[in-house]
Design a protein around this nucleic acid. Structure first.
Lengths: 202, 202
DNA sequence: ATAGTACGTGACCGATCGTTCAGTATTGCC
DNA sequence: GGCAATACTGAACGATCGGTCACGTACTAT
């Protein structure tokens, strides 16, 4: 996820898991079983540790969730904040955002998967939902602008078409797996194609 | 949900909640908080009852889940089994299935919502996932046939386009609310339009 | 009036939950 | 060798989990 140019910068201390490794395994498990259905004991077992060893790496189960959600949200917000995208004309900008969102989703798949399943059961979850809502509003504004420009059809409600198309993009987390039969480039192309022009032949 | 031509067939015994009412409230709560995050005590509180009163209506928390999932799966399978749809030509059949799926999703929204969040944590959940997989395969076969007939674009993988379009349809559970600003007819039209022809003007 | 049915209570069970704590083990650097 | 840094153990905690039990109440059909 983060920069790892140096393979391992010769860490001091007893070897074992570090924070990032524990987080990655935790997110994997949260996605398999759901956050609430995953106990700290489950996580300890998968790592081959005791429960108490985990509390050396983080303060609470919820902190793991917060770190993971931030990873996902940061990526998505980065797409909208990308200067190269922000300066394009509405029509291309929309396609670029779509393209960028798919890439973030694929590259940070476990983290985005977790984000999309958050229900607002705690302060951490509610804060994440709020950030997501802001992201959605910014995209909806972009679609509305594209409708005024004439590059997006005006016979369907802008907010509805935004939700539909991003619903399509987000649904990738339900089935896409890196290393599977569909590769990254093929996938982004197909998604943008279907989103813009639909499944029907013309 | 089930047939209720008679308003209330004069039930005997002490009045109170019946099975269907408890189930409806349970599903509502499961969708708000997640199945695992919802305790039987939570459900009892929302109904204004004690926990043990609930066990008069059902055998286990999991039984509630099973009943709800069956409600959703039955509806979806009914679309594919609909004789009027099965006899149409591939192109119209696909549009009809899309249309029908949206209607089932809207009419049984809480139940389908729950179904789409199942992760396979128990035998009940795994059985539901298996039924859903069968449904998906039948739809994928339909799209493949439409591609051979030429009514669906062949430049994207059939399985991928199926997943994308149904991902779009399923994402409705994340935001659509009956009685909200978007009505049922408008919604089904918009979904079918965007799925078939995309968001871009031509 | 009464029998039968449906609905509900309150106290309790063992299991599991997330979390804490005092102590121990293994490494790199000086 | 000594020290700082990092990783981990085992036992225990209070709380909450899904579920059970013996029993009391309110209604309807006959």
């Amino acid at each position: 996820m983060s920069a790892n140019a140096a393979p391992t910068p010769a860490r001091r201390g007893r070897p074992g898991y570090d924070r990032a490794q524990v987080l990655a395994v935790a997110v994997e498990l949260f996605n398999e079983q759901g956050y609430d259905a995953t106990s700290v004991a489950d996580l300890a077992q998968r790592l081959g540790l005791t429960k108490s060893a985990l509390y050396h790496h983080f303060d609470s189960k919820e902190q793991l969730l917060a770190l993971a959600l931030d990873e996902a949200l940061g990526g998505l917000e980065g797409v909208l904040d990308d200067p190269a995208i922000a300066e394009a004309a509405p029509a291309e900008r929309l396609a670029a955002v779509l393209h960028g969102a798919v890439l973030v989703l694929v590259d940070r798949l476990p983290y985005v998967t977790l984000l999309l399943r958050v229900r607002g059961n705690s302060d951490v979850e509610r804060a994440a939902l709020e950030r997501r809502r802001t992201f959605d509003h910014r995209v909806t504004a972009l679609v509305a602008e594209a409708q005024r420009t004439g590059s997006v059809r005006a016979d369907v409600d802008g907010a509805v078409v935004t939700r539909l198309v991003f619903g399509m993009v987000n649904s990738l987390v339900e089935w896409y797996r890196p290393g599977g039969p569909v590769d990254r480039e093929r996938l982004t192309h197909d998604v943008v194609t279907v989103a813009l022009d639909g499944m029907r032949t013309r």
